[in-house]
């Protein structure tokens, strides 16, 4: 392919790109490399005499032999997949519902954005008390008002309900941002296109699936990338709600990593877990990139 730019223009182009590349190398690639190196060493904070001792793949072998690593990985996958899909689908529904002019629109938008501006710690406390067996509004609504449950249940204290409860808290926290991005994207869909589709007799469902969603593919792809990245690394809300419990019901990879690296003081083993988190996110990004196609990101 013929180069469209002259040599001097190419050089200028590279010089513009260079500062960003250097910053990336210092703050992103170098720490990743350090993490990788750390994962091949026996670094325990309690044994400074052995810090940095090269042990090859031992940390990885120990990790693969440990059943808890696999179950934590599986839980992370389930948590990320469900929370991502639910948060984006719900965001799309809400965005579609409020994407027209009505009185009090600003107020509704501000209300929708509220969970996003609340800190993770406060979100966790809101949900911890909402789920509480005695004082929680969830139990009150489901058992006293709607009579769906025969009695209150400890949502965060049961193996079968802890993970869904944690997912709901995370979805609530993340949904406003997705909703706002989708609302902004919906405004860019040409009105003429929608009108033409309706005149051709397309049902509402077909308008959404065949016209609107393909038109907002790029922001959706970005949302998927952001969500998967954020959720697979999600720690704060889960830690504050359940600390990975009950048992290991919500012990996802970041919690497992924290316990190993900082409670167990084993930075080497922790780094091996972190490498897997990093690899998983990279693989997911690649899959999304392939699924949505190059044009969504160009």
């Amino acid at each position: 392919m013929k180069n469209l730019y002259s040599k001097s223009e190419t050089k200028i182009g590279y010089s513009f790109f260079l500062p960003a590349f250097i910053v990336l190398c210092i703050f992103l690639l170098w720490p990743c490399l350090q993490l990788l190196i750390l994962s091949f060493t026996k670094t325990n904070m309690l044994r400074p005499d052995q810090a940095g001792k090269f042990i090859g793949l031992r940390n990885y072998i120990n990790l693969y032999k440990n059943a808890e690593f696999w179950t934590a990985g599986y839980r992370s996958l389930v948590f990320t997949a469900i929370a991502t899909v639910v948060s984006i689908v719900l965001s799309y529904l809400i965005a579609s519902l409020v994407n027209f002019d009505f009185r009090g629109k600003s107020l509704v938008y501000a209300g929708l954005f509220l969970p996003w501006v609340i800190s993770d710690v406060i979100t966790a406390f809101i949900f911890r008390w909402s789920y509480d067996m005695t004082y929680g509004i969830v139990n009150y609504l489901l058992s006293e008002t709607l009579h769906i449950l025969s009695g209150p249940i400890p949502w965060l204290g049961r193996m079968d309900t802890a993970m869904p409860a944690v997912i709901i808290a995370n979805v609530w926290r993340l949904m406003p941002f997705s909703t706002m991005v989708i609302i902004a994207a919906l405004k860019q869909v040409p009105a003429g296109l929608l009108e033409a589709a309706r005149m051709d007799g397309a049902s509402n469902f077909r308008v959404h699936t065949k016209v609107i969603i393909p038109s907002i593919k790029a922001p959706l792809a970005v949302l998927y990338i952001l969500r998967i990245g954020a959720l697979f690394r999600s720690f704060d809300i889960i830690w504050l709600l359940t600390k990975g419990g009950p048992g290991n019901a919500t012990n996802v990879l970041p919690i497992y990593y924290y316990r190993t690296a900082f409670e167990g003081m084993s930075l080497g083993s922790g780094a091996a877990i972190a490498v897997h988190i990093l690899l998983f996110v990279i693989v997911c990004y690649y899959i999304i990139f392939r699924l949505f196609g190059k044009e969504a990101f160009s």
Binding site: R128, Y131, D132, M133, T134, P154, W155, L156, R158
Partner: peptide, 8 residues
Amino acid sequence: TMYPGSVS
């Protein structure tokens, strides 16, 4: 004898 909510 334990309050079931104790688990969380």
